[in-house]
């Protein structure tokens, strides 16, 4: 299912359970990540993404199920595993009173053959704030520094928890291109994100997580397949009468009315192949009721649509 590679998984999570105060935050989660591939764990805040990754990093001990990273137990075999695993925490975890490059050099000194710090700094644009203390960095600058510390030890597996949170678009591109490079080097990259475009742009494999479980998995094309190629979405005033609109959009002779959903206040999706007639019927219905169509989109499905279909909830 994970596609073309037949190598053993770099990360293998089976039936993971983690409870906080008796409440299961991760509840029977299965996950795999393979060398040379980018695996995205996609889900809303509170879905259990960070807890799952922390179990893989050895920072938390599972309450149930098993976690193997490079065939080893992240807690029991931590000593053997730590030199081969790179970690970028969601809260960055950087000492605040130290210059940015000082932190990177310090983490590099923990490895026998780290990457060249200056080259890595150049690559991620850290030179501009090399001497600035971490306390004074912007959120995006901290994220870039944290990414640098995650990869400076030439790891085989990299865990990135919300890597591009708080980054400007330029910095995001730099991060994305570095992740692509890691993949090309054969590194297994496991990242969490609640950003659809990030998962679509970066991931080979996606696991959609909600309420502590994987509710869908596959490559991005696999997840997007199975739906009709084109989807009609539009924006207008919130609270339109959906049943009435659905009847108006139903082609003559169709067995059931066309379903229309309001996916967010004023955001609508029509679950029917987009045809010229459908668009015309929508426009006519709106004109009759003096409703202004703010925007009409005919496009292929995105991961966001998939997620909405799976959970009925908005991801962002």
């Amino acid at each position: 299912m994970l596609g073309q590679t037949s190598s053993p998984p770099a990360v293998e999570v089976r039936g993971l359970v983690k409870r906080y105060d008796g409440r299961a935050v991760v509840d029977g989660l299965d996950l795999q990540a393979s060398p040379g591939r980018v695996t995205a764990v996609l889900g809303p805040n509170g879905a259990g993404k960070t807890t799952t990754v922390e179990c893989c990093e050895g920072l938390r001990a599972p309450d149930g199920g098993s976690v193997r990273v490079l065939g080893l137990d992240p807690v029991a075999d931590a000593r053997a595993l730590r030199p081969r695993v790179g970690v970028m925490l969601q809260d960055a975890g950087l000492p605040t009173g130290v210059p940015a490059l000082g932190v990177l050099r310090h983490v590099a000194s923990m490895y026998a053959r780290p990457r060249d710090v200056d080259a890595l700094a150049e690559r991620l644009g850290l030179q501009a704030f090399a001497r600035t203390t971490v306390r004074r960095l912007s959120g995006g600058q901290r994220q870039r520094l944290a990414l640098a510390t995650a990869v400076v030890g030439r790891p085989d597996v990299v865990f990135l928890d919300e890597p591009s949170a708080g980054m400007d678009p330029q910095a995001r591109r730099a991060v994305w291109s570095l992740v692509g490079e890691l993949r090309a080097e054969g590194v297994a990259v496991l990242l969490t994100t609640h950003l659809m475009d990030e998962a679509e742009a970066l991931a080979d494999d996606v696991a959609v997580v909600d309420h502590g479980r994987v509710i869908a998995r596959g490559t991005v094309p696999e997840l997007l397949a199975g739906a009709d190629g084109a989807l009609l979405t539009f924006r207008a005033a919130p609270g339109l009468p959906l049943a009435d609109l659905g009847r108006a959009l139903t082609p003559a002779g169709a067995p059931a009315p066309t379903p229309v959903r309001e996916t967010g206040p004023g955001a609508y999706a029509v679950d029917s192949p987009a045809t010229p007639a459908l668009v015309a019927a929508l426009a006519a219905w709106c004109a009759d009721r003096d409703v202004l169509l703010a925007r009409v989109d005919v496009g292929r499905r995105t991961l966001e649509d998939v997620f909405l279909d799976l959970t009925g909830r908005n991801l962002r």
Binding site: G58, L59, L89, D91, G93
Partner: peptide, 10 residues
């Protein structure tokens, strides 16, 4: 600030 956690993973 998570520094203890990060260093524990190195």
């Amino acid at each position: 600030n998570g520094v203890l956690r990060l260093l524990a993973t190195t």
